[in-house]
């Protein structure tokens, strides 16, 4: 489904050269929930942005559905992006648009006719249980509700992949649980492959099938989550897993 091969991304900053992602290769299966976990600055957010080429890697290949995205023309890339949903730590809702308009945004971008847009938006509002908020502006919503709107928006165009960049890092534990349950339901009901970036081990434990541990731009270990039996090999993995809760 998603094959990242030898991805390297370097930033040239005022302070010098920073290798954010260093030769990372990973294969994510169709229908899988996969988390990249690690401390701040480990390169996980940069890496997830390489999957839809919001960040263009300096080296390597990004293969989604047997197609190397780096070889596509700009217009083709934009088309592919329409089928990859994304949610963010700070929701990134349009402040001057209602909940309805926010969710229909990707459909507008994709040029879907108005009538179909309405139907699809209503379905997704039901999925995240926010039909009563349809005319509200984001300022009136709580953090959890904003993230649910963002989830509805991310799945409205029936994507095959959903990218989640720290989706629960701005939320309290209860709300985190709700958001994760929605993600799990979406994964099971629609078979959407989900890639999550998080620094919270609890997130990874709750819904993920596999976890990739990242440190200083490198993917140091991939662990399959299957109850309590997983045994991290790396020192860093042990620190992460011993915490049990968050880090």
């Amino acid at each position: 489904m998603i094959q990242l091969s030898n991805i390297t991304k370097v930033f040239h900053t005022a302070g010098g050269v920073l290798t954010a992602v260093d030769n990372v290769s990973v294969h994510i299966e169709k229908g899988e929930i996969f988390a990249f976990i690690g401390f701040s600055g480990a390169g996980k957010s940069t890496l997830i942005r390489c999957i839809n080429l919001l960040e263009k890697p300096d080296a390597g290949a990004v293969i989604v559905d047997n197609e190397n995205l780096l070889e596509l023309k700009k217009s083709e890339l934009l088309k592919r992006r329409q089928k990859v949903g994304m949610i963010f730590q700070h929701y990134n809702l349009l402040q001057n648009a209602t909940v309805f308009k926010n969710i229909s945004f990707p459909l507008e971008i994709a040029g879907v006719p108005k009538k179909q847009r309405h139907e699809r938006v209503m379905q997704c509002l039901e999925t995240v249980h926010l039909t009563d908020k349809i005319k509200d502006y984001p300022v009136k919503l709580s953090g959890g509700q904003k993230q649910r709107v963002a989830i509805a928006r991310a799945i409205v165009n029936e994507p095959k992949i959903l990218l989640c960049d720290e989706p629960t890092s701005a939320l309290d534990p209860q709300t985190t649980e709700t958001i994760l349950s929605y993600l799990k339901r979406i994964n099971e009901a629609f078979g959407i492959t989900i890639v999550i970036v998080t620094h919270e081990m609890s997130v990874a434990r709750t819904i993920c099938h596999r976890v990739g541990v990242m440190e200083r731009g490198c993917l140091i270990e991939t662990i399959t989550i299957n109850g309590d039996t997983e045994v991290p090999q790396s020192e860093f993995g042990k620190i992460l897993f011993s915490g049990g809760g968050g880090i």
Binding site: L54, F88, N92, F105, P106, N157
Partner: peptide, 17 residues
């Protein structure tokens, strides 16, 4: 907010959009 622009890019929006 730069994040909103990034969101639009992730949806495949053109610069004009």
């Amino acid at each position: 907010n730069r994040g909103v622009i990034e969101m639009a890019e992730s949806c495949g929006a053109t610069t004009f959009q």
